[in-house]
Nucleic acid binder design. Structure first.
Lengths: 232, 232
DNA sequence: TGAGATCCTTAACCGGGGTCAAGGGGGCTA
DNA sequence: TAGCCCCCTTGACCCCGGTTAAGGATCTCA
């Protein structure tokens, strides 16, 4: 945990709002771990004894069905926390977690956390806020799957990666397209085709680099009821 | 709040595990309200000052898009709580809530709750458990939409309504089929068709009454990779 | 008892996206 | 540089479920 790591931890919704000494009391001497692509962190059904802060890299959370199909329910990056909730519901992870790029994680022990919560009730409010943040993200994901077309979902995904709010920009896709596709509830082939449909809207793709001419145009496309192929 | 109401409150994941006096301190003299079908409880974006316990009836939570489309993200019944999380994330409801049958609700004020949490940290752990319960439900919903066909999703929906674990049973659909369809991420027409496809699996429908010959058969169908129309 | 409204079902049609298969291109190792 | 592998794209085909439209059933209310 160097100063940069602290900065990242303090940028999370969970640890960002509490007094410094409370954060220190929780994180104290928790361990930073390094992982390479493909490593499993935990599997759904395992007993949950800790949660994580992403210091660097990307981690995916997903469900697996009896026949092996995967449904990605979230992909987390630097400055995000995940699995805070699992420790409070029967102590079992409801999802599996896998590192999808080389990563550094901060693992926080559940036992000590519970103890701190009892001493520091405000900490509980932060945990609740963080949980609610995840709830909201899931609700939005459900909304998107139910109401948006594939091209619209990708457009939204791209916009969330944009560092700016208007104009144009070039962004780098953070991980494999197959994972992006799964995250958005579609197949890789559909992702390709859907990106193609965004071309008339000023989106060009070259390998993992995506250039967006006009953010406003995409926003409008997402909110429109039209589904992406009118007008040529 | 008569004794029956108390029994319901104490059956929730949230209030079920805490000591009686803590529950009393929170619920104390909170108000029970009566609502008729179609009443709005709150709208997404409104400031969130309270959450609810369903004493009787059904309440739907949903998101609305700019163009008016609805995506139902949850339907709650007697003995369930909802919107606990909203008060902790910027104080705004991320969804809208509407009563879908005549209902009686217990409304719990957020201010007093926060105060109680500071006095009673264990209460925070209960809140976290309850939040996590909702998280898990949303994750499962995403899994289902992404990986199951329409007939499989209804089969799952029916199984969750079954009062027994094996054999057969007859159940009554709790609310309108249009709402069931939306909750499951499909159109009413698809719901009809999908129920039709379950007929060969021992599911017969007569108005709002559904008879299931063999629960095991449906479970198997949900877990099978086949999507429902083979073998006739 | 009948008129209307609401809800549900059925049918025909169509389109988005899944499936299957082939091919291209960049990054490995040798 | 060659060879291989992996990831991605493209195309053809098809099926699930959305769309549209019509008709049937139940409930309400006059």
């Amino acid at each position: 945990m160097d100063p940069t790591d602290w900065q990242i931890v303090r940028s999370t919704p969970l640890f960002g709002t509490m007094p410094q000494e409370v954060a220190v009391s929780v994180i104290g001497n928790q361990t930073v771990t390094v992982h390479r692509k493909g490593e499993m962190l935990f599997q759904q059904g395992e007993s949950a004894n800790s949660f994580f802060v992403v210091l660097d890299g990307w981690v995916k959370l997903y469900r697996v069905t009896p026949d092996g199909a995967e449904a990605v329910v979230g992909v987390f990056r630097r400055g995000e926390t995940f699995a805070e909730g699992a420790m409070f519901i029967g102590g079992r992870y409801p999802v599996s977690a896998e590192v999808v790029t080389s990563s550094r994680l901060l693992r926080i022990d559940g036992q000590t956390l519970r103890r701190r919560i009892r001493e520091q009730p405000d900490l509980a409010l932060s945990m609740l806020a963080s949980s609610s943040y995840h709830l909201k993200a899931l609700v939005e994901q459900i909304e998107h799957i139910k109401l948006l077309s594939a091209p619209q979902r990708i457009a939204d995904f791209l916009l969330r990666l944009c560092p700016v709010r208007e104009g144009g920009c070039t962004i780098e896709l953070p991980y494999e397209k197959a994972l992006i596709a799964n995250r958005l509830g579609m197949k890789p082939e559909s992702l390709s085709r859907a990106l193609g449909k965004l071309r008339p809207l000023g989106v060009s793709v070259d390998r993992e680099n995506v250039t967006i001419v006009d953010i406003a145009l995409l926003k409008q496309f997402i909110e429109s009821t039209e589904r992406g192929d009118e007008g040529f």
